[in-house]
Design a protein around this nucleic acid. Structure first.
Length: 274
DNA sequence: CCTGAAACCTGTCTGC
DNA sequence: TGCAGACAGGTTTCAG
């Protein structure tokens, strides 16, 4: 489920509580339990020896990474396609597909659940080395329309795969990319260096608009992967094949771009930008 | 540098 | 009911 708005929603719940969640900053991890060792991307020995006893000092998000800052290290969580985290009372039984559990000293645990086993954990003293390859945050004030246009026009890439490239921009996934391109009236196969400055500005505005909407609605819940958000009720293109475009009523089409299901309005999103 | 395909996995849904 | 196939919110790696 997780793109930037979903990860942001989870980070906020872990940090501040709300939506039934409990804040975890200030809590000490007494025991770390690895239920499927394949999810740990850093050495197991450090994880087992240095993690117990550390206290959660802060919860942050960078791109789609969830970052728990501990005393000397950080725990990074990437949910990939089907990952999820739960905070619950220690008495609650672990669930099917739980891959790791962090037991707090005061009777709570944080469970990392991931049916498809794509998600990963990193336990490291230098979290910035893990996130170093990421491009700018979409809401970074330094990312001006001019700077964004510069980034777009110095590459010769199809727009959709470029927006999905985390080293170009951090946090976009399949849903929000389709939604942003629809709002901007740009075709996913349009070349990034074919955009005029006004197109780039429109795209940046659209990206920020769909991400803001998603965050405001606590993310999107689809299929059996559920988070509790309701942005899925506001999709204009994503998974709306055959349904009318909310702008011009033309049926939404599905195509495949870069191996990803892609949804467009053929009328609002012509190949030649205008 | 760019594109497309395959790989990593399990679960759900559709159609025969 | 069973079964094959398509599809799924992501990322990495490799061939051309």
């Amino acid at each position: 489920m997780p793109e930037l708005p979903e990860v942001e929603t989870i980070a906020r719940a872990l940090r501040e509580g709300g939506r039934g969640g409990v804040p975890i900053p200030g809590r000490r991890i007494e025991r770390a339990e690895l239920l499927w060792s394949g999810c740990l991307a850093t050495p197991t020995a450090e994880f087992q020896h240095l993690l117990p006893g550390q206290t959660v000092e802060a919860v942050e998000r960078r791109g789609k990474f969830l970052i728990l800052r501990l005393n000397t290290h950080a725990l990074l969580i990437h949910l990939r396609m089907s990952g999820d985290v739960r905070v619950e009372a220690a008495g609650q039984p672990l669930q099917k597909h739980d891959r790791a559990a962090f037991h707090f000293a005061d009777g709570l645990h944080l469970a990392f659940n991931d049916a498809r086993k794509f998600g990963r954990l990193w336990f490291t003293p230098l979290p910035q080395t893990i996130t170093a390859h990421l491009g700018p945050e979409p809401f970074d004030e330094a990312l001006t329309p001019g700077a964004f246009h510069q980034r777009l026009s110095t590459r010769q890439r199809q727009l959709k795969p470029l927006l999905l490239d985390q080293s170009f921009l951090a946090g976009m996934g399949n849903i929000y990319t389709d939604e942003a391109l629809h709002r901007a009236g740009l075709h996913p196969l349009c070349r990034s260096d074919a955009l005029q400055p006004q197109h780039s500005a429109r795209l940046l505005d659209s990206i920020r608009a769909v991400l803001s909407d998603g965050i405001q609605r606590n993310g999107a819940s689809i299929d059996w992967v559920y988070r509790g958000g309701d942005f899925q009720n506001n999709f204009r293109a994503y998974q709306r094949t055959g349904q009318p475009c909310p702008v011009c009523a033309t049926p939404i089409q599905r195509l495949v771009v870069g191996q990803r299901g892609t949804h467009i309005c053929p009328r609002c999103q012509p190949l030649e930008p205008h």
